[in-house]
Nucleic acid binder design. Structure first.
Lengths: 250, 250
DNA sequence: AATATGTATAATGTCTAACAATTGACATAT
DNA sequence: ATATGTCAATTGTTAGACATTATACATATT
């Protein structure tokens, strides 16, 4: 008969108003909100409350707060990287294992290469892909472990960008950012590194020849194989333990 | 030569500590943090700062704050739904169109059905899938628009759950939650509704018969078709405008 | 003239102390 | 037994002050 009264804190009201102003377009990226003291007058609430709303929106990634004389709260262009980082933080606590991520990535990239690639846009990307491989190989020779991994993941990131679909790109980025931590903490064998370079080149070539389906299959297989070896090496059960690496277990 | 000093606000320090305590397991879901006043003593900062940290973690979805005598800040089980909702809010501002979502979902479900289904686990799910269709049909007869849509989307949600992979489930949920808004604001034709019920039954049957590839193809086609018609009906260019439905465009 | 260096200013960051609102537990009255 | 009232604990909100930071501008130095 009666509806439960929705609990609401004052700052949520402010958040909604600002959020909507941004959605509607009254506030655009780089615009500056009134100063906290002005907002206090505008909304008729205390500064603490105003600040809670600003914090919330900052955390959400839609505001950026700068201190100082020309500072204030500025509307920020939504950055997929920020979102991905934030998501990653939370996902660490949600029973997500490395294998889940590997499998999800395999599926994503397979579907991208197999289904979402526009043939006419392919060729311009092949060059970029091969550049990544060259860069990775260079880092390998210079024994720059971290940089090599980044180049290799950039290769996979390019595959996601091939779709031009922001949702796909974001999902992929979330997974990659989380996965990368593992790779950075494992010393792979030389043969494994070589195989990766080889696979990547192979995928790029197949794309160039328009053999998208074949490229998709090899890509998925490649991800599963490399990830499997990583798991063997790190004997990681959960993302949690490897991430924290607690020295003193009681 | 020198590293840029990482700006840090005091509350971020507290957030990190609490976050790590949760990751390590010192704090488990349903555990209660000390009261704000105690935290003030523990961290040696003001209550305002403590509260900022709590807000942040609450917004992130890892804490739940209750007022009152037995209240306080409690560690929350991470809920994929919360994460999806949060992501959805931000994605609204990132040039995401309905067609992006439709395409991502089509390909995602196609991949799931085609590649990720464990044959031995299929049969237990077919029953659930058919239940969804029955429920949708029932709502259709009772002309419960909203409920019918929810049942239909639950059908697709089950497909994602078929993977048992939390990342895949999450990605799918984000897309579905965002997409649903559109469907709820469009009055579909009867034939369209019937076709959907029919398609869903067909997909379930094919799964039961182990024809996963066929089910995958039909599912993808189904999503594209329905989404295409939605777009025609709503003439929606961007998610933004349809969501806000501004009456007064300058 | 170009380059440091200081200074004022405006904004956010933090602190303190109080009061308001909410919730649950317990006592009390009916 | 069932309401009802009261108390205590906790978060929500307010007010005002001071601390810190970043920019712009004036001033001094070379």
């Amino acid at each position: 008969m009666f509806k439960k009264i929705k609990e609401s804190r004052i700052y949520e009201n402010i958040v909604d108003q600002v959020f909507e102003a941004i959605l509607i377009g009254d506030l655009k990226p780089a615009d500056k909100l009134p100063s906290e003291n002005e907002l206090v007058k505008i909304f008729g609430v205390s500064r603490v409350t105003v600040r809670e709303a600003i914090r919330y929106l900052e955390q959400l990634g839609v505001l950026e707060v700068r201190q100082g004389s020309m500072g204030g709260a500025f509307v920020k262009e939504v950055d997929l990287g920020d979102i991905a980082a934030q998501m990653g933080n939370v996902l660490r606590m949600a029973n997500v294992t490395f294998l889940h991520m590997a499998e999800a990535r395999a599926v994503l990239e397979q579907m991208i290469l197999g289904k979402l690639v526009h043939p006419d846009r392919t060729k311009e990307w092949v060059k970029k892909l091969l550049e990544c491989v060259d860069r990775a190989e260079d880092h390998f020779r210079k024994k720059e472990h971290r940089e090599r991994i980044r180049a290799n993941f950039q290769f996979h990131g390019l595959i996601a960008e091939l779709t031009g679909n922001p949702i796909v790109i974001l999902m992929h980025k979330i997974i990659v950012d989380l996965s990368m931590v593992f790779f950075e903490n494992v010393k792979p064998s030389t043969s494994m590194i070589m195989k990766t370079l080889e696979d990547h080149r192979h995928i790029a070539e197949l794309l160039e020849q328009g053999k998208t389906q074949e490229a998709a299959d090899i890509c998925a297989e490649h991800i599963r194989e490399v990830s499997g070896r990583i798991v063997d090496k790190s004997k990681t059960q959960s993302f949690l333990r490897s991430k924290i690496g607690r020295e003193d277990p009681e």
